[in-house]
Structures are given as C-alpha cells and as structure tokens.
Amino acid sequence: MALSKDEVLKVGALSRIRLTDDEVERFAGQLSSILDYVDKLNELDTSGVEPLAHALPLHNVLREDEPRPGLDPQKAVGGAPESAGGFFRVPRVIDDGSSA
C-alpha cells in the first residue's frame, strides 16, 4: 500500500501537523513501507472474529455523583501558553459550528 504525497499532506492536515516538502517526501516513503508490512495481516482470514477492543473483561466501572474540589483557577490556566482574566486565550476563531 503506497501513500502518495497528496495523501500524506491530507493525513498531515487531519493530524494538524505542518509538513515541509522534504518531510512529505520522506514520510511518504516510510509510511508506505510500514503499510506494506502491515498488509501481512491480510494473509489472515479474520471473518467472524470479534475485534478485541477491551483487553480485560471489566464493565460498569462507575463512580458516585459526588462533587470534589478541582484545581485552583490559577493552576488551571497557569500552564497555558496564553491566558487572561482566568480564560485560555487563543487566536481569533471564526465560529464555524465545529463545536459539538
């Protein structure tokens, strides 16, 4: 499975990673050879095999609905690259409704 440079750029954008032309070239080659290796999996017939998403048979791990104090607001935003008035600050966002 070979990845084209366009596909690498697309995956880069989806991953929010800016790539230089050199990187696109290099990653295209490296990712293609990894995907070639991964194609081994197609040698296996997995029809009817239930995917194993959770390694342990645990379920219904629940906590009671009891509030506990969180972080001091100074600590909450203290590690942020930019903050003001208790808010995290980011470059101006044009609201495109991406939010859930």
Binding site: A76, E82, A84, G85, G86, F87, F88, R89, V90, P91, R92, V93, D95, S99
Partner: peptide, 15 residues
C-alpha cells in the same frame, strides 16, 4: 465555551 470578546484580537475559552 469559546467566546469572542469585542476587541477582536483573540478568542477565549472557559472549560
């Protein structure tokens, strides 16, 4: 909540 203060330079986030 993402808010856009009037001054226009940035947006701010309250979690």
């Amino acid at each position: 909540k993402l808010m856009h203060p009037e001054d226009g330079a940035c947006s701010v986030v309250d979690l």
